[in-house]
Amino acid sequence: MPVRRIIIAITGATGAIYGVRLLQVLREIPGIELHLMVSDAGVLNLHQELGMGRKEVEALAHVVHHIRDVGAAIASGSFQSDGMIIAPCSMKTLAAVAHGLSDNLISRAADVVLKERRRLILMVRETPFNLAHLRNMTAVTEMGGIIFPPLPGFYHRPQSITEMVDHTVGRVLDLFAIPHTLTPRWNGMKQDD
């Protein structure tokens, strides 16, 4: 079975749980190789929101890259991957991707994914959005990226934060055509007679 490589980045926006949960779920699926980057602000959020340290999160990945290592394999279009997920994606990272800054390995890897026409998902976290945020999201969308704010669905009547996170993570996995059972599928509206 060929290996599917997925790049995950965790940046300094709130919502570190999404990146961690993606790593946990994908780690259990045979044939997937996870490449991880965590920004310094991402490390702070992991500690603040989840009580996790860098090493604990890095242990969930198969390969870990330092964000200042712009010579890493994932910085080249010759590195074969299925795509990249930035979860969560700060507005700073969004801006760097939208403007092709490639100022660290996270934005460089995203730039490579876009130029190679692979799947890029940015789980942007900020509210409310200002005009710069919206324009940057438009720019990334026009380049082929997918803007995916982690907004919970309630039609499946979640009973916990875990169920809400899993629903969102499941939707992201759907975009990579990765089978999962994290959340029930929509079967239409049920009506009382």
Rank of each mutant, 00 (worst) to 15 (best):
P2R: 13
R5D: 07
I7G: 00
A9H: 02
I10W: 09
T11L: 02
T11R: 02
T11S: 02
G12F: 00
A13P: 04
T14N: 00
G15N: 03
I17W: 08
Y18V: 06
R21I: 06
G31D: 01
E33K: 14
L34N: 04
D40E: 15
A41I: 12
A41S: 14
G42S: 08
L44P: 06
L44N: 12
L46P: 14
Q48I: 12
E49L: 06
E49C: 09
L50F: 11
G51E: 02
M52S: 07
K55F: 06
A59F: 04
H62F: 13
V64Y: 10
H65Y: 09
I67N: 00
V70E: 12
V70H: 13
G71D: 01
A72T: 07
A72I: 04
I74G: 02
A75D: 06
G77R: 09
Q80L: 12
S81P: 01
G83D: 08
G83L: 12
I86Y: 00
A87G: 05
A87V: 08
S90Q: 00
S90L: 00
K92A: 13
L94K: 02
A95T: 14
A98Q: 06
H99I: 14
G100T: 04
N104P: 08
L105E: 03
I106Q: 01
A110F: 10
D111N: 04
E116M: 10
R118W: 11
R125C: 08
L131Y: 14
H133I: 13
R135A: 07
M137D: 03
V140S: 01
T141C: 02
E142T: 15
I146V: 15
F148C: 13
F148N: 10
P150N: 01
L151F: 10
P152R: 08
G153M: 15
F154A: 08
F154V: 07
M164P: 02
V169E: 01
V169N: 03
V169L: 10
G170V: 08
R171V: 03
D174W: 12
L175P: 08
L175T: 11
T181W: 11
T181Q: 14
L182D: 03
L182P: 06
L182R: 05
T183F: 05
P184L: 13
P184E: 03
W186S: 02
N187T: 14
G188S: 11
Q191C: 07
